[in-house]
Lab assay of single mutants.
Amino acid sequence: LYHVLGLDKNATSDDIKKSYRKLALKYHPDKNPDNPEAADKFKEINNAHAILTDATKRNIYD
């Protein structure tokens, strides 16, 4: 999941948040209406963010 956000395992919560915002804006379906690959990437980014920002889920993942 870290690679989805372009981060390593030592990433801080701020790093995760910044990377998520940058990538979410880039791949958001509203910005890429005719690109199904961007929509899939956006879903991956959201999933990675949801797990890595939840301390319990992140510990389980790590």
Rank of each mutant, 00 (worst) to 15 (best):
R58V: 05
I51A: 10
K41Q: 06
K9M: 04
A39W: 14
N46K: 12
K22Q: 15
N35P: 04
D34H: 05
T12R: 02
D14L: 08
A11T: 02
A38R: 07
G6W: 00
F42E: 09
K9S: 11
D8T: 06
K26L: 12
V4F: 05
D62P: 06
L5M: 06
L52C: 00
Y61G: 15
I51Y: 06
A11V: 01
A48L: 00
A48I: 01
S19R: 06
N59H: 11
S13G: 05
N10M: 07
D15V: 02
L25A: 13
T53G: 14
P29I: 02
D8H: 04
A50T: 12
D40T: 14
A39T: 04
N35T: 10
A39H: 11
D34T: 08
A48V: 01
A50D: 15
S19M: 13
N46Y: 06
T56P: 03
T53M: 10
N59I: 12
I60E: 15
D54A: 09
L7R: 02
P33Y: 06
A38C: 05
D15T: 05
D40P: 08
Y20R: 10
T53K: 13
D40K: 15
K17L: 09
Y61M: 08
A11Q: 00
I45V: 13
A38Y: 10
I51G: 08
T56Q: 04
D8Q: 13
K9E: 13
D62N: 03
A38E: 09
K57I: 03
S19L: 02
D15W: 07
N32M: 10
F42T: 09
I45Y: 05
I60Q: 15
A24V: 14
T53I: 07
D8A: 08
H3E: 11
K41V: 07
T53Y: 04
I60S: 15
H3L: 05
N32D: 07
D62C: 00
A24L: 11
K18D: 12
A11S: 02
I51E: 07
N59C: 13
Y61W: 03
V4R: 01
D15N: 08
R58Y: 02
Y2G: 07
T56V: 05
V4H: 05
A11K: 02
K31A: 12
T12C: 08
I60T: 14
P33D: 10
D30R: 09
I16P: 02
N35D: 03
Y27C: 08
I60K: 15
D62K: 01
S19H: 06
K9Q: 08
N32H: 13
D15Y: 00
K57V: 01
N32K: 06
I16E: 07
T56E: 14
S19V: 09
D8W: 01
K18G: 09
P29A: 12
K17N: 08
K22F: 10
E44D: 10
K9W: 03
A48H: 03
L7I: 03
S13M: 13
T12H: 06
D62S: 04
K43D: 13
T12K: 04
P33V: 08
K17W: 09
A11G: 03
L7H: 02
K26M: 13
H28G: 12
